[in-house]
Design a protein around this nucleic acid. Structure first.
Lengths: 334, 334
DNA sequence: TTGTACGCGTTATCAC
DNA sequence: GTGATAACGCGTACAA
């Protein structure tokens, strides 16, 4: 709370002196040791905290580069953020210093509590990831005067970067149909996510269209533990298993593989398993997991570019970018 | 580059008007549509980018809270950052709004290129994670006027938060000795890391002290792929395998398990495997991985608290905090 | 060591 | 009704 002016007053010196002392330039400026000490003591008493904004405003020879923030939820989906960031780092203008990047965690469903979206005092634009339905609702209803890009969500109001999740669901179903599956099942994480809903919808409608039977829609939490326990109880309880299970989350599929091992269900012979995202680990499970590759890295770069274009006012109306996902066949399917 | 004053001049209006238009308050302030349009056009021509610092400085009824930054490398170790952040979120004063948290990626070995450490124009303090030897060197030599805490590194100059990595290495060796192992091996990621070096050192010296034989020190990159390929070539080439292999990285251990499966080496019967970190996935490999639990969450909170204390000048000399890691026995060891 | 102009957006006050 | 003016926030750095 205290400013250097208050310190100056209490210590009986000028603001210049305080500034020098506090920045370790007292030697260069030949401030006396006594004065220095006095200033330091008062600063401590007053709990001085330098104002970053003021400092920065003054030093603004630092060329003005846009500050962009990634709003990401701090939950189990954290694994994808590393791919997102690596995508940005490797393939964008980040390394040329064309923008500054911040990551700001937020709690799922509580986007409305992120003050800086209103005040505009933190960043020039934001990429919002993992927005829940409430969060989207909030965004649609509120008039934010900050450039935004939504990652993996749809909106008419803002630019978006997506994969066609319905198509993904459909393609997986078609693949299973080609492989001769008749009875299938799907496992859905209990998170509020448009993308997940669309994958489910696309899958179920294609299953129906193709004349297959969907035996189960199972739900549990997003993690390995969720996949593990949902499959354990499925296997224990029911006689009839599908021939394949599509997990809308890789960690869940990983957990499921262990459950199968423990209960003597052979993957892929007794049960085939397909995941979603292509997390790093999935190539090294036993057996390696067949999964849908989500082009996170490319989408990350696209999100940043969209946002920069919006900030620079090269883009005046919202744009929707659509990417394609791709089924990676590994050993957990036949 | 352009300021609202320049826009005002070019558009032939006052700065107040420009500000109102740019903030969507033109209605409320009853600015004529023509003026509004003129301002908007000029702003676009000039490529106006609002100065976040100026904005923020003005709005500083926003109570001053310290801004702290986590400097984290954007490499494979990304999995740990999610645990780090979750630790902060769940157990610290973050949720009370006592500080603002930013994450700033940096490239390993290039900490010296992080300008804001010099200028002090971004944050009130920083937690530095994954510093390489060069980075540490840089920190020791340079006089940064910014409060710092080093995560998982030692320093006399700055406060640090660590686990006793030598002790970890020693304890693993002792456990193996108790279990009757005679011939062991260790796999080391090829990253520059004090913590890794200490674990290795502690392990090797204890192995020697206890009269066991260390057959291999294998090195490859930090990832699943690294562990996979190093073990594949080990098994293919050599006749004599150790009875246990200690991996100083969980992902490597995960990759190794798959390599073993593929080559018919049974885990743990033919070869026992121990990892390090207790990544989320390790509880769900097949078999579940015995690993060293790194108390990332607790260390994260401690780092934040140390840093806040330093920023608030409650702490005037560097403090070193030491945590204990813990061996989690699962099924990849007998 | 001190005094003070400066950086830039916001907003309350004042004027036409 | 519309719009201009100026004070303000706070740390920095240069002239005195």
């Amino acid at each position: 709370m205290a400013t250097i002016r208050e310190i100056a007053e209490k210590a009986g010196v000028s603001v210049g002196t305080v500034s020098f002392v506090l920045n370790g330039k007292s030697e260069k400026m030949r401030i006396s040791a006594a004065t220095k000490e006095r200033v330091l003591v008062v600063a401590r008493e007053l709990g001085y905290l330098p104002s970053i904004s003021a400092r920065r405003l003054r030093n603004s020879e630092e060329k003005q580069t846009p500050i962009i923030t990634i709003l990401w939820t701090l939950d189990a989906r954290a694994s994808l953020i590393s791919r997102f960031l690596q995508g940005i780092q490797k393939k964008s203008s980040f390394k040329d210093g064309m923008f500054e990047l911040l990551i700001q965690p937020y709690e799922n469903g509580k986007l409305n509590e992120v003050e800086s979206l209103h005040t505009g005092t933190r960043f020039n634009g934001a990429i919002i990831a993992n927005a829940s339905e409430e969060d989207l609702d909030y965004l649609e209803k509120t008039n934010l005067n900050v450039p935004l890009v939504l990652y993996q969500r749809y909106s008419k109001k803002y630019s978006t970067v997506n994969v066609d999740s319905k198509l993904t669901g459909r393609e997986v179903a078609e693949y299973l149909f080609e492989k001769g599956h008749k009875k299938v099942g799907i496992v859905v994480p209990t998170i509020s996510s448009q993308a997940v809903d669309y994958r489910l919808e696309g899958f179920l409608s294609a299953v129906k269209d193709l004349g297959m039977e969907n035996l189960y829609i199972l739900r549990d939490n997003f993690t390995e533990q969720g996949g593990y326990s949902v499959i354990k109880s499925l296997i224990k309880k029911s006689k009839k298993l599908p021939t394949v299970l599509f997990f809308l989350s890789d960690p869940m599929a990983v957990g499921a593989i262990l459950a199968c091992h423990e209960l003597g269900v052979r993957v892929p012979d007794d049960l085939e398993i397909i995941g979603h995202d292509n997390d790093d680990q999935t190539a090294y499970t036993f057996p390696p997991l067949t999964t849908v590759h989500l082009p996170v890295e490319e989408m990350a770069v696209a999100s940043v570019n969209q946002l920069l274009d919006t900030i620079n006012q090269r883009l005046t109306t919202p744009v929707s970018l659509q990417f394609r996902s791709e089924l990676l066949i590994r050993k957990s399917t036949k």
